[in-house]
Design a protein around this nucleic acid. Structure first.
Lengths: 206, 206
DNA sequence: TCATGTGAAGACATTCACAGCA
DNA sequence: TGCTGTGAATGTCTTCACATGA
């Protein structure tokens, strides 16, 4: 099969999280409509999505939770631990760092960059802070392929260029600018301003 | 025309922001391919999207920036100023508050809620903090229809229920849980963990 | 009987391609 | 000529509906 779409991948991560939250329960089987309900999707969509990971349930008993979880882990996670570079330690950067660190065994923020001399050299949430001038050096030395941009809009494009130059292949951008990124680098934008405006727009419609 | 899709609305907000950034330039006309380039979409898509706001450009000169901006404002903004309720003043809540406040003339965070007695009653970024027990009272008194949830996952569903009960019609959820929300309330989820996992997944693909 | 897996249909989104106009 | 606005075509995503098997 071709590369599954970002939408499918996102839902697979979501199913995994929902399954994970249930792991404690005594029952170790779950039906597609149950997991679908927890995830907020239709059961047809859940079953269709699961086709891509090649795990099959039983028509009588549904899915085995642990086996499904294992299949999802196997499909979604890297073999070795992966590092993430976080650029910008303002409110947004700090929020991401505190929230993210330690949540996923196979993924960690392994370098943080800022241009505030007060912060450079210090350790936050177990993660050392470097100058933004060192992006290329540190990202390459640590073999990092994922970057999160949480700097003000004026600095975002330059940071993106440096990350890409250093070999980063996926970028999550919280700065409210459209980044110019070469093909082959996966980019998603998370603009709080646009998000809230959009919610407000739809809240207004009858 | 029917209600345009969330995707189209989001891009309209994006076009507006790109136009706004250009406002200073001396030229007051812009071609679809120029604005499309800045926004990172195809010119065909830009033109198609603009159909919904009913603004027409000229084949010779393209679009008039100010007229287009005005048409977008008219289409996207409410007539009166709208209030937003922010629940949770941890790292995420603070980041949103600092970033958002004062950016849009027609939209402001007009009430903040938290359960930390140290914060209740204080004013942050011009915005008074209330106890989460007061959600219904304050949201209704201020005629708020948009809520942003930035509380830990355990508290999120209850906060959502209270917001909906108070009359909120659009929710932006930063807590890493799937919320159960009645039809008619517009919901979007922004889960940092899933976002980064997804980026890492695609960064890994050749 | 009831849930899975999946071909086929349907809904939705994007792109193509061209008429019409200055 | 070169751009806009848009019908038609293409592509993608979601749902339907049913054969299959326990």
């Amino acid at each position: 099969m071709n590369q599954p779409s970002p939408k499918i991948i996102e839902r697979l991560f979501l199913y995994r999280r929902c399954l994970f939250m249930l792991k404690e329960n005594e029952m170790n089987q779950i039906f597609s409509h149950e997991l679908a309900r927890l995830s907020g999707v239709s059961s047809a969509q859940l079953r269709r999505d699961l086709m891509v990971i090649g795990y099959s349930g039983s028509p009588t008993n549904g899915y085995n939770k642990l086996a499904l979880l294992k299949a999802l882990n196997n499909y979604l996670d890297a073999n070795e631990k992966e590092g993430v570079a976080l650029v910008g330690l303002g409110d947004v950067g700090r929020a991401i760092l505190h929230y993210f660190q330690g949540r996923r065994p196979s993924l960690e923020i392994s370098a943080v960059f800022d241009n505030d001399p007060q912060k450079i050299g210090r350790v936050f949430s177990g993660c050392k802070t470097y100058s933004v001038d060192q992006i290329k050096e540190i990202v390459q030395a640590n073999n990092i392929h994922v970057g999160v941009i949480a700097v003000p809009e004026q600095a975002a494009q330059q940071v993106a260029d440096e990350l890409v130059d250093a070999g980063v292949r996926g970028i999550l951008n919280y700065a409210p600018v459209r980044l110019d990124i070469p093909d082959g680098v996966y980019l998603e934008n998370r603009d709080v301003l646009v998000s809230i405006e959009k919610i407000a727009y739809f809240a207004r419609q009858v």
